[in-house]
């Protein structure tokens, strides 16, 4: 059973930590956005776009969690008998997106919140505000890739 427990722990970390990161990031942007909306309600669409950006880490985490659950048979089909080594490997594979998702979500939130300040003054610069935030997300995407590659590489 140890193998399954470790693998589930990995799934929980991937979903949980990156979810926290996204929640914090989205929250940060929401605070700034609400301030801008109080002055100019017409910017709702633009600010919502920026607020959605730090939300992706949570989705990447969920994605990793789903892949783990699918690989070990929690979803669809019975539980696979995992050795402790296999379980531990899956736990390790979940770490990139868990850790990077948590931190990059927060920092992307900060970049996007500053972007909100940017479009409050110069709405035509939305594209640049988005790019600044997306620069942060690159590392979450890379972490997701690492996690997925490891998961597909582990034989169960």
């Amino acid at each position: 059973m140890t193998g399954i427990v470790l693998a589930l722990f990995g799934a929980a970390l991937a979903v949980g930590l990156s979810g926290i990161g996204s929640a914090m990031g989205v929250g940060l942007v929401g605070q700034s956005a609400a301030g801008v909306i109080s002055e100019d309600p017409d910017k709702f669409g633009q600010t919502l776009l920026l607020q959605a950006l730090p939300g992706t880490q949570g989705i990447y985490g969920l994605l990793t969690g789903f892949i783990i659950m699918q690989r070990i048979g929690v979803i669809g089909g019975g539980l696979l008998p995992l050795t402790p080594e296999q379980g531990f490997s899956i736990l390790m594979a979940s770490l990139p997106i868990a850790i990077v998702g948590l931190l990059s979500g927060i920092y992307q939130g900060r970049a996007a919140a500053s972007g909100i300040g940017l479009i409050a003054k110069r709405p035509e610069e939305l594209g640049k505000a988005i790019i600044f935030a997306v620069m942060v997300e690159t590392y979450a995407v890379l972490a997701l890739l690492a996690s997925i590659m490891m998961l597909f590489g582990i034989a169960v």
């Binding site: 969920l62 979803i75 669809g76 995407v141 890379l142």
Partner: peptide, 26 residues
Amino acid sequence: VLSYSRLLALGLATGVIASAINTMGG
């Protein structure tokens, strides 16, 4: 060049999440 790996990651993400929705529905 490595930056283009995001194409794979995002493509997989859309597909796997869609499959997950289908699984939950099933």
